[in-house]
Every structure is written in C-alpha cells, then in structure tokens.
Amino acid sequence: MTRRLSIFNVTSLVMGFAFLYLPILLLVVYSFNASRLVTVWGGFSTQWYGALFRNQALMEAAWVTLRIALLSASIATVLGTLAALALTRYGRFPGRTLFTGMVYAPMVMPEVVTGLSLLLFFVAVDLDRGFWTITLAHTTLTMCFVTVVVQARLMTFDRSLEEAAMDLGAPPLRTFFSVTLPLIAPSIVAGFLLAFTLSLDDLVVASFNTGPGATTLPIKIYSQVRLGLSPEINAASTILIGLVTLGVILATLISKRSVLRSRRNAH
C-alpha cells in the first residue's frame, strides 16, 4: 500500500509543527538575550543563567518541586499499578463501579475543583498545609494516569504466559514477579514518568494545597510572570525544556528497542 503525501499534507505538517515549536524556540532564543527586555534582542549573553543559579528562592523552589515529584510519582506508581491490576484481574468485586468511577474521575475533574476539595479535606482533618499536603494531592491526581497506562498494557497481555508459568509449577505470587512484572515493567516506567512530569508541572492543585516553606517552581514562576516577563524565567524554562527533551529522547530510544523486540516476537 502506498500512501502519498500531497502538497496540502506537507504544508499542514510544516505549519502544524511550526506552530507547536516556534513559541518554545523563541523562548529558548530569548533566554540568551543580553537585554533585560524579553522581547527586544540586545545581543547574545548567558548572564540570566548565572542570575538564575544565584536566585536562592528559585533554586529552593526547584528543589522542593523535585522532591515532591519524586515522592508523589513513586507512591502513585505503586497505587496506580495496584489499581490497574484490580481493574483487569479481579473481575467483579464489591464496589467495582464506584472504584472505576473514582479512578477515572480525577482525570476529567477540573484542576480547580480537585485542588479546592483536597484543601478543604486537609483543613477538615487539621493537617498543616505544606510539603506533605502537596505530595498527597499530587499522588491522588497522578495515580489515575499511571492506572490508565498500566491497564492498557495489562489488557493486551497474553494471559497464557501466566498460565504457562503456573503450569510449570510457579505459584501465583512467584508467577507475578517472574513473568507478569518484568513484562509490564515498561508501562510502569512510562506511568512513573507521566506522574513525575504532571507533578512537576502542576500549578493549580499545588497552589491550593501549599503552605509556608513549600513554594513549588510553578507557583514561583506563576507569581513572577504575573509581575511581568523576566529573562530569568526564560533561562529556567530553557533548562527544563532541555532536560525533558533529553529524557524523552532517551526513553524513545529505550522503548524503540523493546518495540522492535516485541514486533519480531509477533511474527
């Protein structure tokens, strides 16, 4: 089957990707601007990167964000994987409908509502707002995304592999750890990365649940942006974009290898 790209197809692809990438590119370019004014080019300079690393508050916010993201993504990965197993492997159990609803609801719930409801909960149980409340909130928000990713893998999982392991003498728990877990591991890693990024990125839920000493990077950036554009933010963004791009390229290379392997498997 030959599919040919028409001029129209090529044009829409070029325009589409230009639309997606031009703003990011401009942001990166202007982080090397010598001028204090973000939109006026004043020559090449890396001074804002220096200023960024000297900005104690920003560095601290980055550190808090990273810790929250790591911790919440780790817990969310465990909980999300368990939920995915429950949904695919446990058939009907009491309250399954409610469970399914609760798994999917946080994904479609507006962030302002999730943020507000969790805050009111933390106030009601008298938990001091700060690092832990944001972590708990992010875990709840992101575990659902982990569930969806892992569940998709489990649904295409060849059950006869597990049956073969049991047939060969492996009890259920050992079957899980020696066959199921290694095979769904890529989706669990993908789920973790998704949860990590979402937590890193979240402004709304974190704003509701933050407290003294727990200012995350998005909250910091948001308050600075409201005061006006700053080349320092451009520099911080460029570093973040660079890290994410590197991570995505690495992840793509790794998954490409496993896709190739499984594709050969299918023949």
Binding site: L20, L26, L27, V225, L229, S237, L240, V244, T245
Partner: peptide
Amino acid sequence: ALVILPFWTSFLIRIYAWIAILKPEGL
C-alpha cells in the same frame, strides 16, 4: 513523538512563551 514532546514540557512555560509573542510590542 514530536506531537507529544511539547506536552512533556511545562504547561505554564508554554503559555508563558505566548505572552512575549502576543504582547503589544511583542514578537
């Protein structure tokens, strides 16, 4: 992958990028 890539970079940053573009004396 190219369509997904921007999604992995911060939402806030991507919106921020547009402020500089759309400003009255912007890009």
